[in-house]
Simulated scan of single mutants.
Amino acid sequence: MPPLPDPLRKKLLAVSGAGLLTIAACYTAFWEGHALQPYADSGGVLTVCYGHTGGDITPETTQTPAQCEALLAADMRQAFAVIDQHVTVPLSDGQRVALAAFIHNLGSGAFARSTLLKRLNAGDIPAACDEFRRWVKVKGVTLNGLVNRRAADEWLCRHGLPDPEATP
């Protein structure tokens, strides 16, 4: 399994002393990118900032950088609440970050119905980590960006967050 992309690993190491919400926001922002103006994502969903979707976004919605940061923090808090609601086994910080980003990207409903969650709650962590790589398609088409993102999610699931003490 390939390691985390070096720019992402460096970003995570830079925030390693921060709280898990900040680390998850950094990780998610790396994959989501940033747009102050709404756009239709690859699935046709109206999206703004760092992958924020929902009824509060209209084609005319424009966000400031500060508003985007606030939306991302709120989205991460919501994703962690979903984890706390549905996961019944202990998780590493890396697993929590990967799951929060996954939930933010796919939605709480998809996560709640997923085999990934079923395997997690059964205590089969290796099989649960394997499940990330199944979530790489949009409308039946495999997207390279999702392949890379899910590989990183799987890596965090298996190996945890990068350790600043172990980094050269």
Rank of each mutant, 00 (worst) to 15 (best):
G140P: 14
T64M: 04
H159G: 03
L120A: 07
V147E: 06
A151P: 03
V141F: 08
Q95G: 11
A152C: 07
L156R: 13
D163L: 00
D56A: 15
T115L: 13
P59H: 04
G123I: 15
V136W: 00
L72H: 06
T88V: 09
G145D: 04
T58H: 12
D124W: 06
A98H: 08
H159L: 05
L72F: 04
M76P: 05
T58F: 03
G123T: 15
L117T: 07
L156P: 15
G160D: 15
F102Y: 09
L116Y: 08
A112W: 01
D84F: 01
A73G: 04
A73I: 08
C129S: 07
D153M: 14
Q78I: 02
I57G: 07
P65T: 09
G94R: 13
F80H: 04
D124Q: 12
T62D: 02
L156G: 13
A151G: 06
A70M: 05
L72G: 05
R119N: 10
D124R: 13
G94K: 12
R149E: 10
G140K: 06
D84K: 00
V87E: 01
K137N: 11
D163T: 02
D153S: 10
C129F: 10
N148A: 10
L116T: 09
V87A: 01
N144A: 11
P162K: 00
R113F: 00
C157A: 14
A101G: 15
R134C: 07
N121F: 09
A127L: 09
D130A: 13
V141H: 13
H104L: 03
P90R: 15
T88W: 01
R96S: 04
L117N: 08
L99C: 08
N148F: 05
A81E: 05
A73W: 02
T64E: 01
V97L: 09
K137H: 12
R119D: 11
T64S: 14
N148M: 07
V97M: 04
D56I: 05
D130V: 05
Q85S: 14
S114L: 01
G109W: 02
S92A: 15
L120H: 12
T64H: 01
A98V: 11
L71H: 03
P126S: 06
D84R: 00
V136D: 06
F132C: 12
P90S: 15
A79M: 01
V138K: 02
L117H: 04
E131K: 10
A151I: 00
K139L: 06
E60V: 07
P90A: 15
A100V: 03
K118N: 07
Q85M: 09
L146H: 02
L117E: 07
R134N: 15
E60D: 14
T115K: 10
Q63S: 03
P65V: 02
N148H: 11
D56R: 11
K118D: 14
F132Q: 11
L120C: 11
L161R: 05
F80Y: 09
H104T: 01
P164L: 00
V87K: 00
W155K: 04
A122N: 12
A73H: 09
D75G: 10
L143Y: 06
R96F: 03
I125N: 08
R150L: 03
G160Y: 02
A100T: 07
P65I: 01
